[in-house]
Write a protein that binds this DNA or RNA. Structure first.
Lengths: 187, 187
DNA sequence: CGCGCGATTGAGTAATTTCAAATCTAGTGG
DNA sequence: CCACTAGATTTGAAATTACTCAATCGCGCG
């Protein structure tokens, strides 16, 4: 269960066994059933989560009940309401399990501690933050430049497996169209 | 000219005079006239830029000549084509001065060096990356949830000064609507 | 005074949404 | 094994929204 975590770190940094053992002592593990809500709108957020197994979504719902998906998180992704985590303000997102999931979780204070004790880890998380930043840049440009059709194709090409795992209505909520419109795309 | 840079760092970290002098030795300074192109699509990107003074835009233009703006960068913002900077692939963005600007610039390798030598700086840039990430999250959610009207209001409330400094057509290209549509918003 | 850029307005068109209904599908219990 | 049901997907039609293209307006500057 910690194997995936170690691989995650070793994509960018090198850790001795002892170091990794120390690092992993900051994490705890938990399983959730499909449909569980990890973070609810209004919650104070204390943890961020590394997905060992399963699939989750981060979303907001407007007054009319329409859902908008910020992010799907699958294996080896990190997920939380980072805004709420960092500011200690109540969450504005909901994070829900779309499958049974296994998570490793790390508290904000433990992350700070890890980063300040190990330059390594600070580096790792800088790169992670940067890569999240770049992914969102792509997303913003796609939302500005591309119509629903090509946003769909792009997502499909990048994460074909996603489409086996979730209903199309959620894809629509991620792409920013209604499920009816998505269904009408010739693809 | 380096005062602003020091303030920028000291929002998050503490630096002695000697440390700051060392850090700032990694930066160089340059002025550009309005309309100058700092980075052109296709360029290999070597630097990131800290805006001391002035205003720039980062944008892409599609086949039909329509422009889409990823970011405006004003005083105390960092700007570059980070994707290109990190991957060493040719830039897909254009960065243009909307006013006369004064920039401090830092090469990718110098940033790496700074970050590896000073845990401090690694920390600073982790926080910067994180805050950029959070800003883009807000932007994505606004693009999904809000219509042009409320995106306009939101931008206006957050950066009222921007509207004194740039033509509305650029605001439209940032919000993801045509300038005609923007002009028709009752606001 | 007139040029040129930016902003606005009008009219027709295209894309997307909304609301409603029909169809399909996978899983459940008899 | 089959009928049933809930959820998911598709389809239809009308309404809305934004877009395109073209023309006009307004203003600052040479």
């Amino acid at each position: 269960m910690y194997t995936e975590l170690r691989q995650q770190f070793e994509e960018f940094i090198r850790l001795t066994d002892a170091e990794f053992e120390y690092v992993s002592s900051f994490f705890q593990t938990k399983k959730f059933k499909k449909h569980s809500i990890i973070i609810q709108s209004g919650d104070i957020v204390e943890y961020e989560y590394f997905v060992v197994n399963g699939l989750l979504k981060t979303s907001q719902t407007d007054e009319k009940g329409k859902e908008y998906i910020l992010q799907f998180a699958m294996e080896n992704w990190w997920v939380s309401d980072y805004q709420a985590l960092i500011t200690h303000e109540p969450s504005t997102f909901e994070i829900e399990c779309l499958e049974n999931v296994e998570l490793l979780y790390l508290s904000f204070s433990n992350k700070s501690k890890l980063c300040s004790e190990m330059h390594n880890m600070e580096y790792f998380f800088r790169l992670k933050a940067t890569s999240g930043f770049l992914n969102l840049q792509k997303r913003v440009m796609a939302l500005l430049k591309n119509d629903a059709q090509s946003r769909y194709r792009e997502l499909f090409e990048q994460y074909p497996s996603l489409f086996q795992r979730i209903p199309k209505s959620l894809v629509a909520a991620y792409l920013g169209v209604t499920r009816e419109t998505l269904s009408r795309l010739s693809v």
